[in-house]
Design a protein around this nucleic acid. Structure first.
Lengths: 304, 304
DNA sequence: TTTTGGATTATTCTAATGCAAAATCCAATC
DNA sequence: GATTGGATTTTGCATTAGAATAATCCAAAA
């Protein structure tokens, strides 16, 4: 029998498959074609197969010899538990966030050597390189000319929140008015459903991360419809930085409901072809979030 | 006698010192304090000292025992030649641009392995990592989940030019109208002088890179005055991508003169406190550049 | 006191090896 | 013909020791 190699990629892939099952993308009895999934995840069949082995050990999948893997009908509660567990598992290993947190709370210096980080967070060279790559891409770390790295103060202050919103208030409404903007029906419907689902769920019960993701998705999908990838990229970059701060923010449930409703209103305006009105509503929506924020001293989670 | 260690950093530092001499920042007879220069360049004294040794070998500096290095009075022609040579030297080693060029001209595949790049461009692991870090930061490369890297098509098409300009037309004029915008007299004067100097020089004689730099500096400095680093960052990122394309563009001297004059007009409006007018002029300025571009099939250098 | 210049120390790079993991290939099976 | 599942190949990571290079220290000179 083949060894079970479970690298990080296999585990991450297993998690993604679980999410697909949870969301109903894969239904009980479905045949999981390995090449199909591999293409979907942008990897080769090897880690997919390893992932499927992992999941069949958990009883989520069932292997039939020479026919591949099939989804069993584990109850949704059981699936949710496994999703929770595997996402917890992945987050534990997320040193990236720990470093970001330490930097934001001044627990580490502005300038550090690789060696320092490697020993402090018990990382191998490649792991550290990977994390610094990410931090560089997201704009809060840079290589010094000689030895060492410098962390940038860009999103440390409370004003940073406001500044990010000011940028968003400029580019998001403008994106809707771009001549290449096309309100894609199908995408809009999907977005509307996502928002509606959030409204229907008891917001209190949702995990913070899920909320942030759905909110970011809305805004980023919208700007993507502009057909200009540079608008999209600017927003994505700003949002990534915002996230660093938001993990420490509080949650305001009432606010969230109202935000959700505004999102839906904007989608409806777009679907009706009222671009100018939608652009204006989006601007107001962001303005409202900003106004709320500046009133409180500690950063709230005001938009998502 | 101490060994002459000339790492890359020493050579780059030597180049920077040469540029300072050329620009008149360092005059013949001046004493070059090592700590001062080290601080200026953000490195330690070691590479600075190595650089000064390199330059004294070339006769640009003169070492007096126990007193340090002093600038000699080599003619400006000779200095210019050395600057040219050392920048040429540095560019030759700039594999980054070669890879970008190869990608833009479809000389390499969309998806490659590190090994492939390492052997094709004869790089060590660390050199390659460095280059890929840069490409990631500038947004045209990304790590695949498993093994390998993917180059992104984001700035390959002619439309990319237009899209970048559309983003700029949105954020640059808006930045001037931000409530935190402060037209810093000193900075404005510096910028005006830079532009005037370009007008006074025979534009035909300038090197492409110098032109692009002065142009980018103008626009980026302007947006920086908004006091919102996220506006600035968005522009810088878009510009970096634009550069990848512009190295292949043609030059239109008449156009450049007119661009320069427009830059100065905008500065004057800002200095007079006419923010709204300045914002509008900037928008028109970018619009003009965009209009010119779309008329020609091959990308021209229309703004700088 | 400030700065230099050599010496010392710390950090990172290089290169080589073995190993883990991902990609690819291919015969067997549906 | 499409898909699987094992085998094979390729790729990249971990580790190490040694070399190169940058940062820092300190006595001596200005």
């Amino acid at each position: 029998m083949a060894e079970l190699r479970n690298g990080d990629l296999a585990r991450r892939t297993a998690h993604e498959i679980l999410v697909m099952i949870q969301s109903g993308d894969i239904k009980p009895g479905d045949h999981l074609r390995s090449q199909l999934l591999a293409d979907k995840f942008g990897v080769s069949r090897s880690p997919v197969r390893d992932a499927m082995h992992l999941l069949s050990d958990k009883g989520v999948l069932e292997q039939r010899r020479n026919r591949g893997f099939f989804a069993t009908d584990k109850g949704p509660g059981r699936i949710a538990k496994l999703v929770q567990a595997s996402s917890q598992n992945l987050e534990d290993q997320d040193v990236y966030r720990r470093i970001a947190e330490d930097w934001l709370t001044d627990a580490i210096d502005e300038e550090v050597t690789e060696l320092f980080l490697q020993t402090r967070y018990d990382l191998t060279k490649a792991e550290l390189k990977d994390i610094l790559l990410r931090a560089t891409r997201e704009g809060w770390a840079e290589r010094k000319k000689g030895y060492g790295w410098r962390f940038l103060p860009v999103a440390k202050t409370p004003e940073a929140f406001e500044q990010i919103y000011r940028l968003r208030m400029t580019i998001e409404p403008a994106a809707i008015l771009e001549p290449t903007f096309t309100p894609d029906r199908k995408r809009l419907t999907e977005l509307r459903d996502d928002q509606q689902r959030l409204l229907d769920t008891d917001v209190e019960k949702l995990r913070l991360e899920r909320l942030l993701n759905t909110g970011s998705d809305f805004h980023e999908s919208l700007i993507q419809l502009s057909g200009n990838p540079f608008f999209h990229m600017s927003l994505v970059r700003a949002n990534r930085m915002r996230r660093l701060l938001e993990y420490r923010a509080k949650l305001d449930a009432d606010r969230l409901y109202s935000q959700c409703r505004q999102h839906i209103e904007i989608i409806d305006l777009l679907a009706a072809g009222e671009l100018i009105e939608a652009s204006y509503a989006l601007k107001k929506h962001l303005q409202g979030a900003l106004a709320k924020k500046t009133r409180s001293s500690r950063p709230d989670l005001v938009d998502f």
